[in-house]
Each structure stands twice: as structure tokens, then as C-alpha cells.
Amino acid sequence: MSEIREFDCRPNDQTGAESPLAWSLQRGPVPDADTQAGVTLRESAFMGHLILRGGAIVLDEAVREVLGINLPARPNTLTLDSTGERSIQWLSPDEWLIVVPGGEEFALEKALRHALGQAHFSLVNVSGGQTVITLSGPKARETLKKSTPYDVHPSAFPVGKGVTTIFAKTSVTLRQPKADCWELIVRRSFADYLYRWLLDAAAEFGVSVER
């Protein structure tokens, strides 16, 4: 068992929590719901984000034991479990991002620490620092083309790919977990800026925001 002291960053009590986009969605511009919209934005708030670092072989064993999915070994790839709710993404040769439904992250962290024991690794809960903005709809790809120099054509960016790249002069982790559904993992402090950018970029296609 590792000697690291763990604590639950979001204990299950009455403490209020605000998602990074809470202010934007309450006070900022929110377009009316539109079923014909070309682009639909949604914040997947309060997900559990964990950064896992270490050697791929050791981590892969523990991750398969605890989460039941493989650690993506190829660069810029993403693996999802059968429900599609839990994912692991390759960020760099020794770094992965695990995203799980909110509330599971502490139990997962404990289980992974237990499975990894004294191995050389690092596991950090970054749930509070970032959020997921989901982009869907027929014009989602067009909106991305206006925002990032990365090639999002289906031949270059198939389902199951995820990259960290330049997006609207800042950086995001962009990924496509399923067809025509894009996830942007953005830093908390950039969430409002990117939300406004996306509204502006998608305005010509018609945009609606799900809450």
C-alpha cells in the first residue's frame, strides 16, 4: 500500500459546488433551445478527472484490474468502457487522463493506489481544475475547423482519437469518443472564454445550449 495520504476532494455532504461554466450559464449569453440547431453545446459538469503517470506496462495491469479497460498504448488514442461513460486517454508517453462519472473518482483513486502498491507512479485528482464541454450536431466539425489548426477531417481524426492541441488561441484536449460527438476538456479558468468563443463560432450554424 502506498504511503500517500488521500482525501476526498468532494465529500458527499451539503457543500455547494459550482461547475466552471455555472456563471456563464446563469449570467452570460445563453441561446434559446433550438431543435434545428447545427451545433449543440453541453457541459458535462462534475466529472471525475484523474491524471495517471508512470510506466505503461505497470499501469496497464492495474487499470485493467480496476477499471476493466486497457490503457491506450498508441499515441493520441482513447479507450472507453462498454457504457462509454469511463474513458482513458493518452496524453503523453507516460501520462494518461482518466475521466469517470462524478463521485467515482475517489473510490477509483483508492483502488488504483491499492492495485499499484509501491510501483513508481503518480495519480492526481484534477477534477476541480477542468471541465468537459460536449459539442454535437451536424455542424460540430465545421465549428471546430474555425477554431483549431488541427485536422478534424474524418480521415485524420477518427472516432476514438484524442489530442491536446491549440484551440482558439488557448489549448484544449479535443477528442471524439463517438461519431459526431466531440468532447473538449478545458481548463476551468478558460471555460467561460471558450464557451463564448464556441457560441460565436457556431452562431452561423445555429447553436443551442443544453442544460
Binding site: 499515441p75 493520441n76 503523453s92 508517453p93 489548426p149 488541427y150 492541441t165 491549440i166
Partner: peptide
Amino acid sequence: PYCEEYREEEEF
């Protein structure tokens, strides 16, 4: 060589 693909100069 780590991402194994070409990226924009801006990223470097």
C-alpha cells in the same frame, strides 16, 4: 517523435 504525427508549429 512522441505523438508520432505532424503538428502545427504553434504547439512547439
